[in-house]
Write a protein that binds this DNA or RNA. Structure first.
Length: 792
DNA sequence: CTCCAGCACGACTAA
DNA sequence: CGTGCTGGAG
């Protein structure tokens, strides 16, 4: 690599590929005037943008203009004519980041960044490459991309075929292991013996091989393969790799600290061409260790890419002083870091606030109130966000915001495409688009119920395997031969004919219309319309949303590709709304006001991180806290609750250790608005508690609150309540308590129509204190507590 | 052979 | 709390 002499771009002629050529003169011209897109950059940023040749690492602290550098750099390359849009490889981790980059390059150039076909996520670019050279990997270009769910079902099948007890060796565990191997670019033969030993008595590697074979048979890949297969192809086909070397004149990577071994290898292979690889990252924001990210990659960048230039961005333009100081002080507790000193560029502003609440419900109420207060003072909801550690925390906020009528949007919550109804609908569409998609066919062959159970499906699969045909084709043959029971045969015949009809229509009618037709004619929407459970309505809404989301796409195939790679729905509609999302999803974003609830030991830092990764896990959690605080421009508001329901059980919790790691001078501790009950460990649950709860009877009447109180009482009786110690017996205490505190608020009479979250609507048959016997229209007669039903 | 209810068990973060 | 498997009824 001695050939790559360090090039100074002070002299434009030396950086030009063709000395004295058009580009060089253009550079000189631009340099003279200074193109306006460069004018707002500080010296470090400008250096990062203008250092075009050779490897470059930009260490960009939070809020130091990282995205700006990346996008300006692209604009610069294009403006100088160094490369055409399709000769730039620009990789991000999330679709959001890719989208943003595309938009901002467009803004800089004054027109859409058309033609940047290699701007995207690692996975989408990997998929694109793999489709081009699918044959080299033993696949057809139409291969399907399996998500985690499909993956696990496939592994289950493999385990069953090998007679491995999936109770003892859960499929998830193997899926997790395979994922890990793929993240480290290990093919079955490369798996270290020790690790392969760990699963199913040493059959790990064998099962991995089997899984890969099944994938190929299904013409499918998983997420890991989207990178691994191209790496394999590049290694085995130098001519293919050479094509990409010629193609990519410049390469940019966002969030380099999050790359795993496979991504690193992929990049290194590609960067052997032009060597113009620019990586941007921040070791303090490395929060994806659990999916294989190797902070090492960023730490040893200059060794991996000799002659690399390193630029540090340390001027923070985002946050006010107190916020930045608090974040810096916190992250300084980490040991394994390159070390950067972020410098605030503005006033100290407001201190970071820390407040406690009795339980998670109160936390949600208090934050909701504060949001409304801010809103009434003229703050936009768009400028506020609630960042949670785990997505289960979101629900409470959603519920609260619904009652308040506060518009909110959830980013990456209970994920849209993971909902059963969406997956079913998608499976239908997948089979229509490619009848060979066996997993999809299996999923919906008996949804809605058609009388095609396991036995029938098994026959179809066996036949398909014997004849080496698709499942629909095997079904067709079985039907034609008059096999199967008469009932199953006619149901199957109808289904196969329907698929034939839909497939034939695929290119004739608009895909949105086709989707509606498929869902309608298959009886799928009907199935939910007839369903009287509470969720059914929401599911139908989701299906409508799915169909609506297909509109922007050219055709069905385009849509399906999008969904398999972009597992999120664009929720960014115009309305002013509070954002609720996980800390992981928040990386790269910023808001004026950031609420950080749930800073409790066990949740944040998350127990599992500590258990599984010890100190490294703690450090990653701390980086996550750092990411959270640094999302805030003007206000960071941290909360913790004394009681939180985890896995359906109320547990008391202690404040996060991170709170004590914040600097006193930059933090203001708020009096909790309502602190009664907290720390009430004594067994004296006398009338005094009731008296205090009484005034709140109307507000504190949610089931959760009741159980919070019940839990408090319970703790008095049993000092260390183990989880599971109370499987089904809390009714008496809860019952009495609830009866007194909600007697006036609730009070259902016999014959009243009520609605229950789980059982739907029904009629009250009997009232006994707060216990109701309700005949539900669908779910039958049940005894429920009145707190769980609303008047219908 | 299919369907459904009841029960056990596992639950953070992502493309 | 939700899903996924098992066993028994139809």
């Amino acid at each position: 690599m001695g050939a790559s002499k360090p090039l100074s771009d002070a002299d434009p002629r030396s950086t030009s590929p063709v000395p004295g050529g058009i580009a060089a003169r253009a550079v000189a011209g631009l340099r003279a005037q200074g193109p306006n897109y460069l004018s707002g950059l500080n010296p470090e940023q400008r250096e990062a943008v203008e250092t075009l040749d050779g490897p470059l690492l930009v260490l960009a602290g939070a809020g130091t203009g990282k995205t700006r550098v990346l996008t300006t750099r692209i604009a610069h390359i294009l403006a100088l004519g160094r490369a055409r849009p399709f000769e730039i490889l620009a990789v991000t981790f999330t679709n959001k980041a890719a989208r943003e980059m595309r938009e901002r390059v467009g803004q800089l150039l004054g027109h859409a960044a058309e033609g940047m076909e290699w701007l995207g996520t690692f996975h989408s670019i990997g998929a694109r490459m793999l489709r081009r050279h699918a044959e080299l990997a033993g696949l057809k270009p139409s291969f399907t991309i399996l998500d985690t769910d499909d993956q696990i079902r496939l592994i289950k099948q493999a385990l069953a075929a090998e007679n491995i007890d999936d109770k003892r060796w859960p499929a998830r565990q193997l899926a997790f292991a395979i994922d890990g191997w793929k993240n480290r670019a290990l093919s079955p033969k490369d798996v270290p013996a020790g690790e392969a030993q760990a699963y199913a008595n040493g059959r790990g590697a064998e099962l991995y091989t089997l899984y890969q074979t099944r994938l190929k048979q299904l013409n499918a890949v998983d997420f890991g393969d989207l990178l691994l297969e191209p790496i394999q192809i590049f290694r085995e086909n130098p001519d293919v790799l050479a094509q990409y070397h010629r193609r990519f004149r410049y390469m940019l990577v966002d969030e380099y600290q999050d790359t795993n071994v496979a991504q690193y290898l992929w990049l290194r292979l590609l960067a052997q061409g032009s060597k113009n690889l620019a990586c941007v990252g921040d070791d303090d924001q490395s929060i994806y260790g659990w999916r294989g990210a190797e902070v090492e990659n960023i730490l040893k960048f200059d060794r991996d890419f000799p002659g690399a230039k390193v630029v540090r961005l340390e001027r923070n333009y985002r946050s006010t002083g107190h916020i930045l100081n608090a974040a810096s002080f916190l992250i300084a507790k980490n040991e394994g870091r390159l070390g950067k000193t972020l410098r605030p560029q503005t006033e100290l502003g407001e201190k970071v606030t820390v407040a406690g609440s009795w339980d998670s419900g109160e936390e949600a109420r208090a934050i909701g109130d504060e949001i409304e207060a801010l809103q009434s003072r003229g703050h936009r909801l768009d400028d506020m966000a609630i960042l949670v550690r785990a997505s289960f925390q979101m629900r409470e906020f959603e519920e609260r915001f619904i009652t308040l009528g506060l518009p909110y949007r959830v980013v990456g919550g209970p994920r849209f495409y993971e909902r059963a109804e969406i997956r079913d609908a998608m499976a239908y569409l997948r089979v229509v688009a490619s009848p060979a998609d066996a997993l999809a066919f299996e999923r919906i062959v008996n949804v809605p119920k058609r009388g095609l159970g396991d036995a029938t499906v098994k026959q179809i699969i066996e036949r398909a395997r014997a004849d080496e045909v698709t499942l629909p084709e095997a079904s067709r043959r079985l039907v034609a031969e008059g096999a199967l029971a008469a009932k199953a045969r006619s149901a199957l015949k109808d289904l196969v004919l329907s698929f034939d009809r839909w497939s034939a229509e695929m290119d004739r009618i608009p895909h949105v219309e086709l989707a509606e037709k498929v869902l309608e004619e298959s009886g799928y929407t009907d199935m939910w319309s007839k369903d009287r459970t509470a969720e059914a309505q929401g599911r139908l809404e989701n299906l409508k949303e799915l169909v609506r989301s297909m509109e922007p796409f050219e055709n069905l195939r385009g849509f399906l590709e999008h969904v398999s790679l972009v597992m999120d729905v664009d929720g960014a509609r115009g309305e002013d709304a509070v954002t609720v999302m996980t800390l992981h999803a928040a990386k790269g974003l910023e808001f004026d006001t950031v609420f950080l609830p749930g800073w409790e030991e066990g949740l944040f830092p998350h127990q599992r991180s500590l258990d599984e990764n010890g100190r490294a896990g703690l450090e990653e959690e701390r980086r996550l806290a750092y990411v959270g605080v640094t999302r805030a421009r003007r206000r960071a508001k941290i909360w913790f609750a004394s009681n939180r329901r985890v896995h359906g059980m109320w547990q008391s919790s202690i404040p996060s250790r991170f709170l004590d790691e914040l600097p006193e001078a930059d933090v203001e501790v708020l009096e909790a608005p309502v602190t009664f009950g907290a720390g009430h460990m004594g067994g004296s649950y006398g009338p005094s508690r009731f008296d205090r709860a009484e005034p709140f009877a109307s507000t504190y009447s949610t089931p959760g609150w009741k159980r919070a109180q019940e839990r408090g009482f319970d703790r008095g009786a049993t000092p260390s309540p183990g989880p599971g110690a109370r499987r089904s017996g809390p009714m008496t205490i809860e019952g009495e308590l609830v009866a007194s505190s909600t007697a006036k608020a609730a009070g259902f009479a016999e014959g009243a129509r009520v609605f229950h979250q789980k059982f739907g609507t029904g009629t009250v048959v009997e009232v006994e204190g707060n216990k109701l016997t309700v005949a539900f229209d669908r779910a039958g007669q049940k005894r429920v507590l009145d707190g769980f039903v609303k008047a219908a």
